[in-house]
């Protein structure tokens, strides 16, 4: 019945990663609740806000790399992970 969704291994991995990310954030939140704070971003954010902003900007980073450069996507992924870490720590 789910055939029409034409799953592939990369997309399955992608959604698993997103889902486990959300799950991880939830568990982290239960273990130690977040405190809203103001970092280098123009608004004060919670951990979840920073996670979301990180995901969204990562998507844009990938798009730019794919669309307008010939750099490998793995580089984009690396940059995104680094950016995510920066954002979570100081954002």
């Amino acid at each position: 019945m789910m055939e029409w969704m034409v799953w592939t291994l990369p997309t399955a991995l992608f959604f698993t990663a997103i889902a486990s990310g959300l799950l991880g954030m939830t568990i982290w939140e239960v273990v130690s609740p977040t405190i809203e704070r103001k970092g280098f971003l123009p608004i004060s954010t919670t951990r979840g806000d920073r996670f979301f902003i990180g995901l969204l900007t990562s998507a844009y980073i990938h798009l730019v790399v794919v669309g307008f450069t010939d750099i490998s996507l793995w580089v984009a992924l690396g940059v995104s992970i680094a950016w995510m870490a920066v954002l979570m720590r100081w954002g």
């Binding site: 029409w4 969704m5 034409v6 799953w7 592939t8 990369p10 997309t11 992608f14 959604f15």
Partner: peptide, 9 residues
């Protein structure tokens, strides 16, 4: 999800 799947194939 389906749209994401389509987009890579």
């Amino acid at each position: 999800m389906t749209v994401v799947n389509y987009s890579l194939q």
